[in-house]
Amino acid sequence: MSGARGRRAVAEALALLGLGLVVALGGHFFLSNYWLTVGVVIAMYSLPSLALLLLLGYAGRPSFGHAAFFAVGAYASAVTTTRLGWDPVAGALAGIVVAGAVAYVIGFPLLRLSGHYLAIATLAFAIIVRVVLENATPLTGGLNGIVGIPSLGTPRTAFVLVVMLVTIIYAAAVFIDHSRIGRILRALGDDERAMASCGINPQSIRTAVFVASAVLTSIAGSVYAHFLTYISPEPFNVDMSVLFVTMMLVGGTGSVWGALIGACIVGAIPAVLSTYAAYSALLYGIAIVAVLLLAPYGVLGLPTQLRIARARLRRIVASGSKPAQAGEVANVD
């Protein structure tokens, strides 16, 4: 990494760390317990959002099953801390190891698939993991779950802790994204021939990215277990996997910041709508559709979208003709 790009990477990473520090301190001094709780949830979910962004950006693969890795992290932390009396950090590390190993084993057969076929395969994987957790009763407590997981402390402590953890991970991700490896991965995406011509084995790269995304998601799962102090298999369902992808899409897949912005928006919508109680779920659905319609490339894609719109407008003004029809707009991807 050298020159302007390197300086930009350092600047962005530092900006993130600074922002994280400000948010952590600001939250610590000014936020109510409720908003601190919402903040912890957003920060926690921003990790799977990042994991999916890297998976899509670097390996060209979507996943509809990352709730499984989230569950693995949560259960590893819960089981090791409540049954074996481990330290929470050791528990989270156990989660990382297990999630990484599982991802490595299933990565090889699954990542050969693509598109909708991979979507259903990852979804199926998450369902299998959930059923196993439901039935491994001696270890996981089965459907009754595990109670009495050590707490992260008051919402204030939890907020500062989780925000700092997430900030450091994001700063590292920004740094890697701007590095030579990150740029090569992004440029190649899942173009197998391009990779092969650079002497890279696409299959092993994909598996490595998959493992990394599983590890990131597992960390969030560990946070979840200590944050709620109770876990059961029920919440690790399709809705959770879908939520992770929604966050990534709403933010935009072009840069690491998209995952963070998406998590903030999608996480904050229910909090803002909570006063509408019974209508909050309906309004949430409307909000998701509206955001994706107004910004189909995510919030980060808005500038590009504006550029296209402006160009189109200029063309209309110049020619005095009707607006361009669907399909005439150049593909922005």
Binding site: V23, G26, F30, L31, W35, I261, C264, A268
Partner: peptide, 13 residues
């Protein structure tokens, strides 16, 4: 993003 939330949160707090 977060600052805006922080501000509105402060009022709520």
């Amino acid at each position: 993003m977060r600052l805006a939330r922080a501000l509105s949160g402060t009022v709520a707090a």
